[in-house]
Design a protein around this nucleic acid. Structure first.
Length: 267
DNA sequence: TGGGCATGCGCAA
DNA sequence: TGCGCCTGCCCAT
């Protein structure tokens, strides 16, 4: 379930569980075996995230992880159960164990590689150094629809399909509006909203964009349901209009064309 | 049992 | 623009 908040939450948890301790590292699936052998028994020094990228720092090595669409971590008490065959990277500390499965990337990298990865990314709303002006500058250079630009990690690092859909809905912006038609004040407000949602996402480990008062939900219902206005909804949670969806940048984009008027320029 | 789907992304054309 | 890759889970059969 990886958008940026997921990776920051993982970094926070992994840091708490492992930083400053020696850990056992293994690679049941085999692909990461040589690296795991090198890391086994080493001191885990820290974990950090940038956008959707997670980094595990050991005393003299760094592991770079990108979950892709399917990747996830399973967490266990210690001692952990026998790993399933698909576990690529297992870390066992004093009190917790984690299993990485299905990730697009899990590799040893150098500090230089980390710099190169981060340099391709736009500002991250979850980082103190995340600068919305940098995002604004990048957005100005994009000659595409806003629904496409928001998925571009060089504009904002950490936004995925849910935040794209919900952010545009919150501002009444149709995904097919040209990125260049977003004005500066609007962008600043979008950034603030995104940062608020993502911070909350790190705390609760899920995405909630609905206002509980507006939708009239109990806390119980809020905890159970997909708490979005248009993302994977049949009908707009605000006005009831059927939600439309179409392929944009290879992913389903969702919008309520009553709350988010379609730009005149698009057919 | 198997098809479809999922909060990504890079690459070939 | 379309495809391939990584895996788990849910649903229909």
């Amino acid at each position: 379930m990886p958008e940026g908040h997921t990776l920051h939450r993982l970094a926070r948890d992994h840091h708490r569980w492992f930083a400053g301790t020696a850990v056992a590292v293994s690679a049941p699936q085999g692909g990461f075996a040589a690296a795991a052998a090198q890391l086994d028994g080493r001191a885990f020094t820290r974990a950090h995230a940038y956008g959707k990228h997670l980094f595990h720092h050991y005393d003299d090595a760094i592991v770079h992880i990108h979950l892709g669409l399917f990747g996830r971590f399973f967490t266990h008490e210690v001692p952990p159960p026998e790993p399933r065959a698909t576990v690529r990277y297992r870390v066992v500390g004093a009190g917790r164990a984690i299993d990485l499965v299905g990730a697009t990337q899990c590799e040893l990298v150098t500090p230089g590689d980390v710099d190169a990865i981060v340099s391709r990314l736009g500002p991250d709303p979850l980082r103190r150094d995340g600068d919305p002006e940098e995002g604004w500058q990048a957005l100005q250079r994009r000659r595409v629809e806003i629904g496409r630009a928001l998925m571009d990690q060089g504009v904002v690092a950490g936004v995925g399909n849910v935040f794209r859909a919900e952010l545009l809905f919150a501002f009444g912006i149709h995904p097919l509006v040209a990125a260049s038609d977003i004005d500066h004040d609007q962008w600043s407000a979008m950034w603030d909203q995104l940062r608020q949602w993502m911070r909350s996402g790190v705390r609760t480990n899920r995405i909630v964009t609905v206002d509980r008062e507006e939708v009239g939900w109990s806390r119980y219902r809020l905890a159970r349901e997909r708490a979005t206005y248009v993302y994977r909804q049949e009908h707009c949670r605000r006005c009831g209009t059927p939600v439309r969806r179409w392929d944009l940048a290879g992913r389903w984009a969702y919008a309520c064309e009553s709350c988010q008027p379609r730009p005149a320029s698009s057919a």
